[in-house]
């Protein structure tokens, strides 16, 4: 059996507000194998956002070990984390988070620029990713000229253009109507079918149904 994409061992994250220590994650163990589609489900305040920040290498655990794609990340400095994000993680956000005043194709090409890929190749790969998501006609549209569903598809294209080991989606349907939401979930199913590892973070139990496995989180602990 190959090594897991994600391996959390006794991971805790405590916020120091200056007066009190607020634990957001406590002693979490989690393994996600290559090619899995996992939903992390929990109500607001359960620690899902902290979980997402840690899994996405935007934040470091205060205790415990985190192996992402075989690399231990808890000791990395800011630059090291940035490199890991660039190479191994694709983010999909609830509010799309596309770069403003930047066309769809430039948005999708942006992560490749940080990998040092030449511009010509960047644009070619971005175009290919957008076409794969059915946005071949919208390459040069600004985010403001796209519907929510289209923006989210641009966001997904941007997340997969680097071929990351982990696709991390934070409430990707949260801002969408049910029809567009269903389309996005369907896209994740399709990506999963091509062998991608996907972690979907949501409070919505129905959305979580799309995943193969559900991990429930409450008060900073995994409950099921």
């Amino acid at each position: 059996m190959s090594e897991p994409v994600i391996s959390l061992e006794h991971v805790s994250r405590v916020y120091d507000t200056g007066k009190v220590l607020v634990p957001a994650l406590e002693d979490v163990d989690l393994r996600i194998e290559r090619g899995e589609f996992v939903a992390i489900v929990g109500p607001s305040g359960s620690g899902k956002t902290t979980m997402m920040n840690i899994l996405g290498c935007l934040d470091r655990p205060t205790a415990g070990r985190y192996l992402l794609d075989g690399t231990s990340v808890e000791d990395l400095d800011d630059n090291g984390l940035a490199t890991v994000r660039s190479r191994s993680i694709g983010f999909v956000f609830q509010s799309y988070n596309l770069l403003p005043r930047t066309s769809a194709i430039e948005n999708v090409a942006a992560p490749l620029a940080y990998q040092g890929v030449a511009r010509k190749e960047r644009l070619a790969r971005a175009k290919e990713a957008l076409e794969r998501l059915g946005l071949g006609e919208r390459l040069h549209h600004q985010p403001t000229e796209l519907s929510g569903g289209q923006q989210q598809r641009v966001g997904i294209a941007r997340a997969i253009v680097t071929e990351p080991a982990l696709l991390l989606a934070d409430e990707p349907t949260g801002n969408l109507d049910s029809h567009s939401g269903a389309e996005v979930i369907d896209l994740f199913r399709q990506l999963h079918a091509t062998g991608r590892t996907i972690v979907l973070i949501t409070h919505d139990v129905d959305v979580a149904e799309a995943a193969d496995r559900q991990v429930h989180i409450r008060d900073g602990r995994i409950t099921a």
Binding site: G56, A82, T83, R85, S86, F91, N97, Y114
Partner: peptide
Amino acid sequence: GIRKAIGARG
């Protein structure tokens, strides 16, 4: 924030 999330270093 977006740029950092998609791999920009400081």
